[in-house]
């Protein structure tokens, strides 16, 4: 049973996303629902060799909580960056901060790096070859250690719980 499921739908969440994207692009109708469903099965099957091992989401409610926190942070932090950009530039204290990673899955690290880049004031600039350190550029940072602690508590811990890695 499990193997049949794996053979037809190797990535269920990818299939779901493809189907929803198809319906959003073309409008909701029975015909497009069917065509989208066919594509949602065929595309993951044909592109299967290209995909790295994507971890499963183990904690869905936590995932929604995480998305809400990130969206809220994007709005709030955008305003603070806007003020910094328009204010005097001499008082800016930019810096490169090294962030020790606790996550050990490539996909989870990519999600964390994207989150860091989306929340204003920080951009993830590089990740070390052995995937243990993330290099972050901060626009205005007083205390690098506090920044690292905040990112750990706000983004890395939820991601760790979501993917259990």
């Amino acid at each position: 049973m499990k193997s049949v499921m794996d053979r037809v739908l190797p990535f269920p969440s990818l299939s779901l996303i493809l189907w929803l994207a198809w319906l959003l692009l073309n409008g909701f109708s029975a015909g497009h629902a069917l065509l989208g469903a066919v594509l949602a099965v065929v595309l993951p099957l044909t592109t299967k060799p290209f995909w790295p091992n994507v971890p499963r989401i183990r904690n869905l409610p936590r995932m929604f909580g995480f998305v809400v926190v990130v969206l809220y942070d994007i709005v709030v932090a955008n305003i603070s960056v806007a003020i910094k950009v328009l204010g005097p530039l001499k008082s800016l204290r930019p810096g490169f901060v090294e962030f020790p990673l606790e996550l050990d899955d490539d996909f989870a690290i990519a999600l964390l790096a994207s989150t860091i880049s989306l929340t204003p004031g920080t951009v993830s600039a590089d990740v070390s070859q052995d995937r243990t350190t993330l290099l972050i550029h901060a626009l205005d940072v007083d205390d690098p250690a506090a920044l690292v602690a905040e990112i750990k508590q706000r983004y890395e811990r939820p991601l760790k719980e979501i993917f259990e890695c």
Partner: peptide, 15 residues
């Protein structure tokens, strides 16, 4: 307006 490339990177990517 920002003085170097790394700080400039912050403006467009989010705002």
């Amino acid at each position: 307006r920002l003085p170097d490339f790394y700080t400039r990177l912050h403006g467009p990517t989010k705002a």
